[in-house]
């Protein structure tokens, strides 16, 4: 496994599964750019401070959050992880009150890793499914 792929696993293990906020500073560039996490307007999130705010809110909503890395792909400069996210909505942190419901959804993140830190990340997680599982949205195309 390439060093960068190991770092990708470390990111999900330490930042999300072990919920260690200090790992964000260790792995994320201070001026990093995050696409796909900034809410329905699609705003770009910048830097570790913005990411930490998102991290705290999401873990507050899902204190038992667990991310499983299903696959990693790399071309030497860009790295991609396909993940499954699981948790229970027992806390504040989302725009809706805790529902006690279980969530399970998938997502893919593509990142550029330079000089030992992630500098730009594109995220596409299935938040539509998450909100559907929480009972906020009804999705049915059939």
């Amino acid at each position: 496994m390439m060093q960068e792929e190991t770092v990708l696993h470390r990111w999900f293990d330490e930042v999300w599964n072990n919920k260690r906020e200090s790992a964000i500073d260790e792995l994320l560039a201070a001026d990093s750019i995050h696409h796909g996490l900034g809410g329905p307007e699609g705003q770009v999130m910048r830097g570790t401070a913005d990411f930490k705010q998102f991290h705290r809110a999401f873990l507050a909503a899902f204190p038992d959050l667990e991310v499983t890395v299903e696959d990693v792909v790399s071309d030497g400069r860009k790295f991609v992880a396909r993940c499954t996210v699981r948790g229970t909505h027992t806390g504040e942190g989302l725009p809706i009150a805790p529902t006690g419901r279980r969530i399970e959804f998938t997502g893919i993140g593509m990142c550029i890793y330079e000089d030992g830190k992630f500098v730009e990340v594109w995220n596409e997680y299935d938040f539509m499914k998450m909100y559907s599982q929480l009972g906020v949205l009804s999705l049915n195309l059939e």
Partner: peptide
């Protein structure tokens, strides 16, 4: 993203 917006979900 508009569906989330019209549903009142903004996170």
């Amino acid at each position: 993203k508009s569906e989330l917006k019209t549903s009142g979900v903004s996170g």
